[in-house]
Design a protein around this nucleic acid. Structure first.
Length: 271
DNA sequence: AGGAAAACCTGCGTGC
DNA sequence: TGCACGCAGGTTTTCC
């Protein structure tokens, strides 16, 4: 389920329960995610307390005294707090058993996600080392994006989805942010005018912030189980609306393919 | 070195 | 009903 807003929604949904909690045990039913889940995870985490739960890009970082548990939800992953009575379902690959009897349960049908361990002594993980700035941080501004885009001839949609440029902009929000800033997704990144880049930065921040706010309205569901919150509540302007009327001008929304991913836009509003 | 495509998986909807 | 096909919110790896 994840783009950045979904990951942040997950983090907020479980943070209060997980932070400060002691891990009683870890149950691994299937190790084969994106990379193998460390076999030693139960021994590594048993008896240890989660000091804090943070998000970097689309990664969730569980900090322990002796290292960090790095979790990515891939395309189809979810992380929920459930009671011990809840039956294990298909694709429930990993359980973190908490001291209060509840369980932090990782489900991922497609297994594109990962759960890795990075010892504190080893420094930051390689996966996190080369990521671009957080889109909602001050570091992501027009000056920075201008510099990044100027060196790229690829389509602007591909550029803003590149995690070296800025993290957390996935396929849905890339189309949405380009719609909001009235920029055609196939424009060469280095062809954008300064005012367009300013608009794009504002649009990316607003789109993600709105999505997080929308996700927040259903956060409770994570705790009590049931349902996949947030995501589907979002009203999109472009994404998934092929041939439907543009909400601004009525022109049918176009669908094209860029880098083997679907792109949606209004050929009238976006130039 | 930059950019495009393949690769990793399962599930679901569509069309024959 | 069954089956083949294409597509899905990601990102690393491989191949020009």
């Amino acid at each position: 389920m994840p783009e950045l807003p979904e990951v942040e929604t997950t983090r907020r949904g479980i943070a209060d329960i997980v932070t400060g909690a002691r891990i009683e045990d870890v149950v691994i039913r299937n190790r084969s995610l994106r990379w193998p889940v460390p076999e030693a995870l139960p021994e590594l985490l048993r008896g240890q307390r989660v000091q804090k739960l943070e998000r970097r890009a689309k990664y969730l970082l569980f900090t322990f005294e002796h290292g960090t548990l790095i979790v990515h939800l891939g395309m189809s992953g979810s992380l929920r707090v459930v009671t011990a009575a809840r039956p294990v379902e298909k694709h429930d690959h990993i359980d973190l058993l908490l001291e209060d009897g509840r369980i932090l349960r990782y489900k991922d049908p497609r297994r594109f996600g990962c759960m890795l361990w990075q010892p504190a002594a080893a420094g930051p993980h390689k996966l996190l080392a080369e990521l671009g700035p957080e889109p909602l941080s001050d570091a992501f501004d027009a000056g920075y994006l201008s510099e990044q885009l100027s060196r790229r001839g690829s389509a602007v949609k591909l550029a803003i989805m590149d995690q070296h440029v800025v993290v957390g902009v996935g396929n849905i929000y890339a189309s949405e942010a380009l719609f909001r800033s009235a920029i055609h997704p196939e424009r060469a990144a280095n062809s954008l005018k300064k005012r367009e880049i300013v608009a794009l930065v504002v649009a990316i921040k607003a789109t993600l912030a709105d999505a997080i706010a929308a996700g927040g309205t259903t956060l409770r569901d994570y705790v009590d189980s049931t349902g996949n919150p947030g995501y589907f509540l979002l009203q999109t302007y472009a994404y998934g609306r092929t041939d439907e009327a543009c909400r601004q001008c009525g022109t049918p929304i176009s669908e094209i393919r860029q880098g083997q991913r679907a792109t949606f836009f209004c050929r009238q509003c976006q130039k």
